[in-house]
Amino acid sequence: MTYHLEFSALLPYWQDLAWGLLFTIVLTVVSTAVGIAVGTLGASARTFGPAWLSGIVRVYVELIRNTPFIVQLFFIFFGLPALGLRLTETTAAFVAMVVNLGAYSTEIIRAGIEATPKGHIEAGVSLAMSRLEVLRYIVLRQAFAKIYPALSSQIVIVMLGSAVVSQISAPDLTYAANFIQSRNFRAFEVYFVVALIYLVLAIVLRYVLRVIGDRFVKVS
């Protein structure tokens, strides 16, 4: 049996792909922003917070880092309604992404915070800066500059991992691929093209993150 590749079979579905792509981009951007905010709070609590808070954050980070994203997603989407918390597919996808990236960025940012020289904090305190000011202008600023590359690659990994949200029928790029495949049965063409779209997205995302890093994060 021979199979003839027919990529033009995708053309009628370009709008589905475009909407899926848009969803994936918005999902990535929003969960990156919120996830890093969670990570910053988590890392600050882990290093400067009271023991009980630091302990809770640690459990959160280890639980998320040592379980698959798809299980976290299923737990949030299928499991939480049992506790009376019912989320739509889209909300569940956003929440799962934030929870996931939050844990990873907590760990990454914490490494940056712990690398801050003690003398810098003491210098800040001696200039009558408040604890919050020291954290904001001295500790976090340097921490982010140090861990920015690690954080960037984690963001790309999370973007690629977001393909899994299609499994709870959140309408992302992979969901569009599955939909088109179920219509025209051109599985290889669809998944190949969508894989390439993800590849381009990953390359663009890396580039954008580098530009942002050069402009805003570097300590000159």
């Binding site: 690629l160 991992g161 977001s162 393909a163 899994v164 299609s166 992979t174 691929a177 599985a187 290889f188 998944y191 190949f192 969508v194 894989a195 390439l196 993800y198 590849l199 990953a202 390359i203």
Partner: peptide, 11 residues
């Protein structure tokens, strides 16, 4: 490294 593992499985 640049495409989702899920997409590779589907392919």
């Amino acid at each position: 490294q640049g495409t989702p593992l899920l997409m590779q499985l589907f392919l």
